[in-house]
C-alpha cells in the first residue's frame, strides 16, 4: 500500500481519539486490531525516518507496537 495513505489513515485515527494521556494506548490497540502486520510494518518504517512528523500519540503508538512486535 501507498505509505502516504497509511500516514493519512493514522493521522485521522489520532485526530478522532481524544487524548487524556492514554490516547497512544488506544491508537496502538486500534492499529493492532484492524491493520495488517504489513501495514503496521510499512508505517513503522516511514515513522522511523520521519519522526518529526509524528509529535503526538500516534508516534508513541506505532513505536510501542513495534517494540511489542520485536519482543
Amino acid at each position: 500500500m501507498d505509505v502516504q495513505k497509511l500516514v493519512m489513515m493514522g493521522k485521522q485515527i489520532e485526530k478522532n481519539i481524544p487524548d487524556h494521556g492514554e490516547a497512544h494506548v488506544k491508537i496502538a490497540a486500534h492499529l493492532d486490531s484492524f491493520w495488517t502486520p504489513k501495514m503496521r510494518a510499512d508505517f513503522w518504517a516511514y515513522y522511523n525516518s520521519n519522526k518529526d512528523e509524528f509529535p503526538g500519540p500516534l508516534g508513541v503508538a506505532i513505536a510501542t507496537l513495534h517494540s511489542q512486535a520485536k519482543a
Binding site: 501507498d2 486490531s33 495488517t36 504489513k38 501495514m39
Partner: peptide
C-alpha cells in the same frame, strides 16, 4: 492471528502489486 486486508487495502495493494 492477525487481521487481514479490508476491501480498500486490497484495492490499494493491487495497485502496489502486493
Amino acid at each position: 492471528p492477525d487481521p487481514g486486508m479490508r476491501i480498500p487495502n486490497m484495492l490499494d495493494g493491487a495497485l502496489s502489486g502486493e
